[in-house]
Write a protein that binds this DNA or RNA. Structure first.
Length: 142
RNA sequence: GAGGAGGCGCAGGCGGUUGCAGAUUGGUCAGUUCGCUGGCUAAGUCUGAGGAAAGUCCGGGCUCCCAAAAGAUCGAACUUGCUAGGUAACGCCUAGUGCGGGCGACCGUGAGGAGAGUGCCACAGAAACAUACCGCCGAUGGUGUUUGGGUCUGAGCCGCAAAUACACAGGUAAGGGUGCAAGGGUGCGGUAAGAGCGCACCAGCAAUGUCGUGAGGCAUUGGCUCGGUAAACCCCGGUUGGGAGCAAGGUUGUAGGAGUCAUGGUUGAUCUUUUUCCGGCUCCGGGCAGGGUGUGGGCAACCCAUUCUGCGAAAUCCGCUAGAGGUGUCUGGUGACAGGCAUCCCAGAUAGAUAACUGCCCUUCUGGUGAUCGUCUAAAUGGCAGCAUCAGAAGAACAGAACCCGGCUUAUGUCCGCCUCUUCCCUU
RNA sequence: GCGAGCGUAGCCAAGUGGUUAAGGCAGUGGAUUGUGGUUCCGCCAUUCGUGGGUUCGAGUCCCAUCGUUCGCC
C-alpha cells in the first residue's frame, strides 16, 4: 500500500512553504505540519505546480478538487540504515492511504519522524497519526 | 568415529488478491511549424534490487576545462617495490621463488638498497661503531734482585747469559658482566696469552660452471666475515599530463561584449617536431564576413544568426541504461584468462517505486504410525539407521539500486548444500 | 558525490617511539574539627575504539576496520 504520485509532495518549495506557514502539532514520535491551500491567491504566491494552477485558472467557476498532498520527512538521524527508514515510510503511507477519504481537500501535510520512532510498530503509528489529524482538524466531521 | 585444512554453490520454486513505479497499446484534453510534443486516465499486456546493491579503499569508462599529439631533460606527485604471466587498468587475480609457521593438508608474507650518505639505538654497559672495566698474558722492551761470565788489585762497571719478581710500556678479544644487539658458530691445533692465525664441518659473501624465460636452485672454488633500523630521512628502480566530477555536461533562458589590422597561441618548467587545431601575413581565384529592417544605392544605426564570457532557473527534457553484458557449448592454456559459435535483452526511481496478505510444492527439524530389509545383541516383541505416510514448526539473516563497469574490504545462514584433501583412533 | 578531523578513568582532557600514561572535576579512604565545610595526605586506567603488522620496545609509526563530528556542492 503506497500513495499515488498525485497525493505526494514532490518539490523542495512545497516542503519549505509548509514549514514556513503551516501549523504544527506533535506527539511522542511524530510531528505534523499542515497547510490549507484553498485560496486561489495562494496558488500564485507559491511558485509550485504551475501546470496545476494554470488548469485551475482556465476554468475558475468549476471548483476542481485540489488533491491532498502528503510528504514524509525522515532523516538519517532516525536510523543510518535505509531499510529501517523505508519501512517506517511504508507503514506511514499505508495508514495515510486509509485516512485519505476522510481528509478535507486542499491540505498539504508533512509528517516528520523523530529519532525515537525506531522502536515503534504499526499500531503505535496508527494511534498517533489519528490523534494528530484530529487535533489539527484536518479530518472533517465524517 | 573424532578433530582439522582448502574450495565452490545458493540466497527456496510456481501461482492468486490488493497496491506502487516504468514501458507499450488504446482513450481523452491542451499545444502545434501538422512531423509531433506534453498532461490525465486504464479495459489489457510486459517488467520491476543484491551477493554484498553497503563501506567508498583502489582501478577504469564517460563528460567538461587547460588547442591537441609525440619525444628529450629537469622537477613534482604516487607510496607502487621477489619473478613470470593475465587484464582496458589496478595496490586485483593466477602460477612459481625465497623466508617464517604448522606433525600434516595448508597458511602468512610491506620480500629493492644499511658495501652512497645522514640520523637514531632509552636504561644498563668500558664501549652501540670502534673501544678495553674486570680478567688473561707480559714472549718483546723497561726497572729491580740472585747466580754465572767478562773486565779489574778492589770498590765498581757491562749493547753478556740464565733464573725470578713487578704489572710500567704494551699485547689480547678466549672468558666475566650489560643489553634486543658486543664484529660469524662448534671442535682440534696453535700461542706468552689469545685471535680465521691454521685446519675440518656448518652459516653467510663473492666468482665460475650448470639447470631455469626469470626470481632463484644445485655443484665447485676462493679470500676469510661485514651490528640493527629505510612501516626514520633518503638513494635506486617503476608508474603517471593536471584539475573537476552525472549536482559532470548538453539543451533551454537571460545579460554584456566581439564581429577582427594581433607576427603569434599551449598541458608543472625548458626545448624540439608534427597537425583534418585556432589565428595571422604574401600571391592567385572568390568575397569585402552572412541574413533582415532602413535607403534610389551605400554608410551609420538596430535586430537575427555566428562566436566569447558571466549569471540564473527547474528536479521539464536529453545524459539514462546494449554493456570490458549475461547464458550455453567447443578450442587453447597448469591456471588467471583468451578466442570461436549459438542464443537472450534483463530496474531506471528523483521527498526517491519493488510492499502486504495468502494457496500448493520443495527442503530441514521435532513427534506419531506402518511395513520390510540392514545392523547391534546369545536372542528380540528391544536399540540404531534408512524408506513411506500423517501432524506441527521454520524458510531466515545481513541488508535497498541512484551514471556505468572491474576488484578489495566488511556484514550475514534455515543447527543451508556439495566436493577435495589431511591427522589421530577403532575394525577388517 | 567530494573532502577533513577525533576516539585515552564516570566527565573534561595532556602525552618527542623508551619507567607501571601528566593534570583537573567527580568518587572514595584517612587526618585536621565538638560536627560540617575548607585544607592536607592517599587510592582509583588489568591498558589508550577494535584487529593485525614494523620495531629490542607502540597510546605514538604503517595497514585494515568500527563508531562519531564537521565542511563544500
Amino acid at each position: 500500500m503506497a500513495l499515488p504520485k498525485v497525493h505526494r509532495l514532490r518539490h523542495r518549495q512545497d516542503f519549505s512553504a509548509v514549514y514556513k506557514a503551516g501549523l504544527r502539532r506533535s506527539t511522542q514520535n511524530l510531528t505534523l505540519r499542515a497547510l490549507q491551500r484553498s485560496q486561489p491567491a495562494e496558488f500564485n504566491l507559491s511558485a509550485v505546480g504551475t501546470d496545476l494552477s494554470t488548469d485551475l485558472k482556465v476554468e475558475p467557476p468549476v471548483e476542481k478538487v485540489v488533491p491532498t498532498r502528503i510528504g514524509i520527512s525522515i532523516s538519517q538521524k532516525v536510523s543510518k540504515r535505509a531499510v529501517v527508514r523505508n519501512r517506517i515510510k511504508r507503514q506511514l503511507k499505508a495508514i495515510l492511504q486509509q485516512f485519505l477519504p476522510y481528509i478535507a481537500p486542499g491540505w498539504q501535510l508533512v509528517i516528520v519522524v523523530k529519532p525515537t520512532a525506531t522502536e515503534c510498530g504499526y499500531e503505535q503509528f496508527l494511534q498517533e497519526l489519528k490523534q494528530l489529524l484530529i487535533s489539527a482538524e484536518v479530518i472533517n466531521g465524517h
